[in-house]
């Protein structure tokens, strides 16, 4: 059986043949399975954004392939729009793409382009709005009257309403306060459970990644530097720091404890895990093993 989404030797060169030529992606081969929840991290300019824009056919590879259900998405360039409905993508600061007269119409823009019936559009818009907790009376307002956080959620709902199989988000929490961040992350997870879809999201916040992602993809200089379970990736502190990245603050504390002779046997990357490990340890009176 073929994987859900796969790239083979994906390479992208910007401005080929000009003095500004830059290789943004270098032979990226990676596989995402149905139901994956992947956090993508990498230094600025590591090729994350370029990479995700290939997955729904917004950028065409210079070399290599993107396979959805084992089929090359560029096999028939005229069908590329259909790919974009299956692989939904939310850009950075998506609130700047709102344009319709009402929030309802804006969320309906995607489904409308899919050519589905009015009834189904309404159903989908309401469903997406409820996932991101936009109240019904807001739907008839102009998107420009909403608050920053509401705008962001409305824009995300606009992509959710297309009900894509793969849901990609580029820094969905950038510029939000902690409460807003958590809300959006929870809503993304809620969407994933509801649709049983695959979610990829780019983030600079290791805490967000640790909280939500099951797997982590680390990009560095246009290549895949690491790809694995979250705990595996976050256990390689030195390697991450070499790439200008970091690990969640909690993980840093655990590494520090280990250096000082308190080997707790296991690592933690969220506050909850840390509590689970530290509490018994403290109850034992601070000894490493019984």
């Amino acid at each position: 059986m073929s994987s859900l989404l796969e790239t083979k030797g994906l390479t992208h060169v910007y401005g080929e043949g000009t003095p500004f030529e830059k290789k943004a992606l270098d032979e990226v081969s990676i596989t995402f399975e149905q139901g994956d929840l992947v956090g993508i991290i990498g230094h600025t300019g590591s090729g994350k954004s370029t990479f995700i824009q290939h997955l729904n056919g917004l950028l065409k590879p210079t070399a290599g392939q993107v396979l959805l259900h084992g089929n090359d998405i560029w096999a028939n360039p005229k069908q590329i729009r259909d790919i974009r409905f299956k692989v939904g993508m939310v850009f950075q600061y998506p609130e700047y793409q709102l344009f319709e007269e009402t929030v309802y119409k804006d969320i309906a823009f995607g489904p409308k382009n899919m050519g589905i019936s009015e009834d189904e559009i309404e159903q989908r818009v309401k469903k997406a709005a409820s996932i991101v907790h936009l109240k019904e009376d807001l739907l008839q307002k102009s998107p420009f009257e909403l608050s920053g956080g509401e705008k962001r959620r409305a824009a995300i709902a606009g992509v959710m309403a297309m009900e894509p199989e793969v849901f990609i988000l580029d820094e969905p929490t950038a510029g939000l306060d902690p409460k807003g961040r958590n809300q959006i992350l929870d809503q993304i997870c809620a969407y994933r459970e509801e649709q049983n879809s695959t979610v990829l999201f780019v983030s600079h916040s290791m805490e967000d990644i640790a909280k939500v992602a099951k797997k982590v993809l680390v990009m560095h200089k246009g290549k895949v530097a690491m790809y694995g379970q979250t705990y595996e990736v976050f256990s390689q502190v030195d390697k991450l720091e070499q790439m200008g990245l970091t690990v969640p603050a909690v993980t840093k504390i655990f590494t520090g404890l280990k250096k000082r002779g308190f080997d707790l046997g296991q690592n933690a990357y969220t506050i909850e895990q840390a509590a689970d490990v530290l509490l018994p340890f403290l109850q034992r009176g601070g000894t490493v093993h019984d």
Binding site: F91, Q92, G110, N113
Partner: peptide, 13 residues
């Protein structure tokens, strides 16, 4: 470019 990409991602033709 960004806005165009974003709208294309929502199926704008």
């Amino acid at each position: 470019d960004k806005i165009m990409s974003a709208q294309k991602a929502r199926g704008a033709d």
